[in-house]
Nucleic acid binder design. Structure first.
Lengths: 203, 203
DNA sequence: GATAGTGACATACGATACGTACGTCAACTG
DNA sequence: CAGTTGACGTACGTATCGTATGTCACTATC
């Protein structure tokens, strides 16, 4: 219909990506049949192999897309915060909340690492954690943070946060578990502040 | 040969488990062909399905075995430490080191969660993290730890530690990365002590 | 504007691997 | 000693991935 060849091609690529993302996010990578979800958008596996090489390549593309979206959401949240410290706390809290979304949980934290290996090692991905590291750098520059290796810290905090999300997601009472996890997580972050440490209040 | 029926059965079960563990630990869950690794110990898939139900059941059994071993190793380390606090630090450091072993990395942190879902939710598994939580409880009872939710803390710390291990394992220079990760991790733990906080020394 | 060529996508095929249904033979029971 | 149980092997069906090949529309060049 409307459109040059390039536009149509981008359109199909986008449709394939969307279909795959939906399938991966719901039934999971291994149980997602390429025949099925390509047919769902009126295409075949042929198109898929043409655009993405193989099933892994497709997952890689989906992961990249989600990662970019997450990074964007996080930096927006950071910009909205009144203080830098508040921004950090807000960012990581938001990170945990995002990690609770089933699609992100499944694709970014379960199937992604399992199929593609550790996400943090791919070039041009993990914008998401890079964004969070930047916040630590800023705080450190302002002297609000204790002396630490920000990259290592970012990875540790990232691990704690994503693990917390997985814990919440799998728990019997996600609501209650979420309260506990986020509260403890903030307590942990607070302990990294330079100078006066707020008395931690459990409950 | 020697043995009643029960003994022979336990023997084959053990051989299957060993073969599967080796295959899962090296080529990974999906690329491990049941036909191949059963043949490697002179059996067939029939035996497998008889003992473990299906491929997932087999992985479950392997994970359980490894988890038990890890918990045992951790509690031994804890017992050897001169003080409780030292025990905690030693335990978690050992945890990171164990998580670096390729077999554990692959089975417990990549394929296990991907195929079976979050490990922490299975009954009778995760002895490993339970052991670590106990250490936190002890320290808290002794007043050496700040007031915190020990279960939540255990999960957060566990997340940080396992993530650190994954980071190290995938890094270009594991030796150097390991130093940074462990150092930052100890710094983090130190921040959870009640009372005087050692000035953190980077380098 | 006609024709040759490129490339986006479909189709057909082969290989592998899982799960099941069934068969068999050794070991336990009475 | 005979019947039965059950541990394990064998044969088969099916699903899915990857490749190799085909085709048709669009583009570029003369």
């Amino acid at each position: 219909m409307a459109g040059t060849r390039k536009e149509k091609m981008a359109e199909t690529r986008s449709r394939l990506l969307q279909a795959a993302r939906k399938a991966f996010g719901t039934v999971g990578y291994t149980d997602a049949s390429m025949d099925d979800f390509t047919a769902a958008v009126g295409l075949t596996r042929g198109a898929l192999y043409h655009h993405f090489g193989d099933k892994q390549g497709l997952l890689r593309a989906v992961v990249e897309q989600i990662d970019t979206e997450m990074a964007e959401r996080l930096s927006q949240i950071s910009r909205r915060a009144p203080t830098r410290w508040q921004g950090l706390v807000d960012e990581w809290t938001a990170y945990i909340e995002m990690a609770l979304e089933p699609e992100i949980q499944r694709i970014m934290f379960r199937d992604g690492p399992a199929v593609l290996g550790d996400v943090s090692q791919w070039a041009s991905t993990d914008n998401c954690v890079t964004t969070l590291k930047k916040s630590l750098d800023d705080l450190k520059a302002d002297g609000l943070l204790i002396e630490l290796d920000t990259e290592a810290a970012a990875r540790l905090i990232n691990g704690a946060a994503s693990h917390a999300a997985t814990w919440i997601a799998a728990s019997a009472d996600p609501q209650a578990t979420s309260m506990r996890a986020v509260s403890s997580f903030r307590q942990l972050l607070n302990r990294l502040r330079e100078g006066d440490i707020q008395p931690t209040r459990t409950k």
